[in-house]
Write a protein that binds this DNA or RNA. Structure first.
Lengths: 107, 107
DNA sequence: GTTGAATTTCGATAACCATCGTAGTTCGAT
DNA sequence: ATCGAACTACGATGGTTATCGAAATTCAAC
């Protein structure tokens, strides 16, 4: 039985490190990832618009798509809202320690 | 007594995570970092030209400068050669686990 | 001091990308 | 079925950057 995935996401083995690093290298996207990382495990995710960022809505969309296509986040539409979660399990499996190391940076 | 540093390098507390990630997000630069990571600890470093890369010499110079200015590598001129080493101690201190996680990626 | 090797600097080019505003879509609620 | 909210798609723009070749630098060795 398939998981109901509306938007295209790379599978775990399609995720490439250069693409992930590029996705994380942007200040706005990193801020978004930090916010996602603070969610409790198993949470529904966060609405894309719920994180306040110093950018316009269309730019926000662009960044979230970049993160999704890189395999950093998973986006699940529910009604008019898109819940976004960190793909922590996949990232930890592929690059153990990387995410925690990045999040350890004092910003 | 000061270490003889010819070229400008950021100090540990000047290193910023977005800049490091951007430096590592390029395929050529990541390949270079992989080569540097395989050197034994305490090695003199590697000559910039000793790693074979599918690019011209001037592009190689550009990439090494990007890594140096990001704080990823340290470059020490010795005669006509510039020895380059990974700043593993600084990166591990700032972002513990990040570098090893990235290098764990099967490429 | 001239040659040669390692590497940089310069100037140019093409591609990429973050950003925006506007217009459009989708869905829940009234 | 209309409205508003959440979000996307499109087209444009300006800035960054990866790339190159050619000329310049630096140093060791002959």
């Amino acid at each position: 039985m398939e998981v109901m995935t509306d938007l295209p996401h790379p599978t775990r083995d399609e995720i490439r490190i250069e693409v992930v690093l590029h996705a994380l290298a942007d200040p706005v996207r990193l801020q978004l990832v930090r916010a996602l990382a603070e969610l409790p495990d198993g949470a529904e995710g966060i609405a894309c618009g719920a994180v306040e960022l110093p950018i316009s809505k269309s730019t926000r969309t662009h960044h979230i798509r970049t993160l999704r296509e890189a395999g950093v986040v998973r986006v699940r539409p529910k009604g008019t809202v898109r819940f976004t979660t960190l793909r922590r399990d996949d990232l930890d499996a592929l690059y153990p320690g990387m995410l925690d190391g990045i999040l350890a940076a004092k910003h």
